[in-house]
Amino acid sequence: MTTTTSSPTIILIAGHWLGAWAWDEVLEHLKTDRSRALAMTLPGLDGDDPDRAAKTLDDQAAAILDVFAGLGVSEDQPATIVAHSGANAPVSLVLDRHPELVHRVVWVDSGPVASGSVFAPDIADELEELPLPSLDVLAQQASLEGLSIEVLERFRSRAVPEPGPVLRQPVELTNDARRAVRTTLVCCSIPSAQVLELARTGHALFAEVANLEHLDVVDLPTGHWPMWSRPRDLANAIQSAASRTN
Score class of each variant (00 low, 15 high):
residue 116 G to N: 14
residue 116 G to V: 14
residue 117 S to D: 13
residue 118 V to A: 05
residue 120 A to D: 09
residue 121 P to F: 03
residue 126 E to R: 08
residue 126 E to Q: 10
residue 127 L to K: 08
residue 128 E to K: 15
residue 129 E to P: 01
residue 130 L to K: 09
residue 131 P to M: 07
residue 132 L to F: 02
residue 133 P to W: 08
residue 133 P to D: 01
residue 134 S to N: 05
residue 134 S to F: 02
residue 135 L to H: 04
residue 135 L to D: 02
residue 136 D to V: 13
residue 136 D to G: 02
residue 137 V to A: 13
residue 138 L to K: 00
residue 141 Q to Y: 10
residue 142 A to M: 13
residue 145 E to W: 06
residue 147 L to W: 01
residue 148 S to D: 08
residue 149 I to R: 14
residue 150 E to G: 04
residue 150 E to A: 11
residue 154 R to F: 00
residue 154 R to C: 03
residue 156 R to S: 11
residue 157 S to R: 10
residue 157 S to D: 14
residue 157 S to E: 14
residue 158 R to Q: 10
residue 158 R to D: 07
residue 158 R to L: 12
residue 160 V to R: 00
residue 161 P to A: 04
residue 164 G to T: 03
residue 164 G to K: 01
residue 165 P to M: 11
residue 166 V to I: 07
residue 167 L to Y: 04
residue 167 L to I: 00
residue 168 R to T: 10
residue 168 R to I: 12
residue 173 L to G: 07
residue 173 L to P: 02
residue 174 T to S: 12
residue 175 N to P: 11
residue 176 D to P: 12
residue 176 D to W: 08
residue 178 R to G: 04
residue 179 R to K: 15
residue 180 A to Q: 11
residue 181 V to W: 02
residue 182 R to P: 10
residue 184 T to N: 12
residue 185 L to S: 05
residue 185 L to T: 03
residue 187 C to T: 09
residue 187 C to V: 07
residue 188 C to V: 13
residue 190 I to C: 03
residue 191 P to H: 06
residue 192 S to I: 08
residue 192 S to R: 15
residue 193 A to P: 03
residue 194 Q to F: 15
residue 195 V to T: 10
residue 196 L to G: 03
residue 197 E to P: 06
residue 197 E to K: 08
residue 198 L to C: 09
residue 198 L to D: 07
residue 199 A to E: 03
residue 199 A to R: 08
residue 201 T to I: 11
residue 202 G to Q: 10
residue 203 H to F: 09
residue 204 A to S: 14
residue 205 L to V: 00
residue 206 F to S: 11
residue 206 F to V: 04
residue 206 F to C: 06
residue 206 F to Q: 05
residue 209 V to C: 07
residue 210 A to M: 14
residue 210 A to R: 15
residue 211 N to P: 00
residue 211 N to S: 03
residue 213 E to P: 02
residue 213 E to V: 07
residue 214 H to P: 01
residue 215 L to F: 15
residue 216 D to Q: 13
residue 218 V to M: 15
